[in-house]
């Protein structure tokens, strides 16, 4: 075998491996969606059915028993709200750390990030009591605040890195032009880091959307999100696979569609930069 042939085989093997990995990741989702269109009987059949007559019965029953749209709306509001609040705090913070770096900046970032290493359940009690004390239990406001705080360290770290890509001279030029700090952020930093901010926001929205612990613990009915909705389908008499699959599909679908749509914007945003 020549070197060139060997290289071709290595490339083919790599591509095959990538496809296998992609299928392994994708299969459970595929199976979940497939199962959601089966009857409960078909869902637990062994060997599993690949060809069957699809039914919408699960989806109809879910909408009969509960109100999917209420949970979906809660998810949308808390995910977007939490992200917005996190961005409002993180943008000025990341700006000041990126452009007025001191020898402590790295430590501060690490310290903030280290709070993410704490298990959430460790602060459950204080947060539970605070929520009750401020009469915020089972409200979307509470989840927005929690989600914002939860993602703040990561959002800040990513924005910090994006902001540092902006050449210092451009900010100095704007300083020479007499720009106030607020205008500097609004008119120079935000437009230049737009792609980064958008992808950070997307990441934060996805993290909020998928968050289950706080949403299950801190809500009962009014502010429950889709993750709590999925959890509520654990019945004492066992799992109804087809229904749980349908619920899960409903919980995943919006964020998958949203991410897929935003992806095109993101790629544009990321290549817009071209600072030099």
């Amino acid at each position: 075998m020549t070197d060139r042939q060997r290289q071709i085989w290595i490339d083919r093997a790599a591509v095959t491996a990538a496809w296998i990995a992609a299928l392994v990741f994708f299969f459970p989702i595929f199976w979940m969606v497939l199962t959601s269109f089966k009857t409960e009987g078909q869902a637990i059949q062994v060997p599993p059915l690949l060809i069957f007559e699809p039914t919408l019965e699960n989806y109809l029953e879910i909408q009969d028993r509960t109100n999917y749209f209420k949970f979906a709306m809660n998810s949308v509001i808390t995910a977007f709200g939490g992200t917005l609040v996190a961005l409002l705090i993180a943008i000025p913070s990341a700006y000041s750390m990126a452009f007025n770096t001191t020898h402590r900046t790295k430590d501060v970032l690490m310290w903030m990030l280290s709070t993410k290493m704490l298990p959430a359940v460790g602060v459950l009690m204080p947060i539970y009591f605070l929520a009750q004390k401020f009469d915020l239990f089972d409200t979307r406001t509470l989840l927005v605040v929690i989600y914002a705080m939860m993602n703040l360290p990561i959002v800040m770290l990513i924005l910090f890195n994006y902001f540092r890509e902006i050449p210092k001279e451009i900010l100095e030029a704007s300083r020479m032009d007499g720009t106030s700090t607020f205008n500097e952020i609004r008119q120079i930093v935000l437009p230049l880091a737009w792609g980064g901010i958008a992808s950070t926001a997307l990441l934060s929205i996805i993290l909020c959307w998928n968050e289950a612990f706080w949403s299950i613990v801190l809500t009962t009915t009014d502010a429950s999100t889709l993750t709590a909705f999925v959890a509520s389908f654990q019945a004492p008499e066992g799992l109804f696979w087809a229904k749980v699959s349908a619920v899960s599909t409903l919980a995943c679908a919006p964020i998958v569609v949203f991410g897929w749509m935003a992806q095109k914007q993101l790629v544009q945003g990321l290549t817009f930069g071209a600072v030099k």
């Binding site: 001279e169 451009i170 100095e172 030029a173 300083r175 020479m176 007499g178 230049l192 930069g273 071209a274």
Partner: peptide, 20 residues
């Protein structure tokens, strides 16, 4: 005095134009 109020204008080595 703030840079913009000193009555000076600067031309940077890297031009430092606002790309957007």
């Amino acid at each position: 005095v703030a840079p913009s109020k000193r009555g000076v204008a600067m031309v940077f080595q890297t031009y430092a134009l606002y790309p957007h």
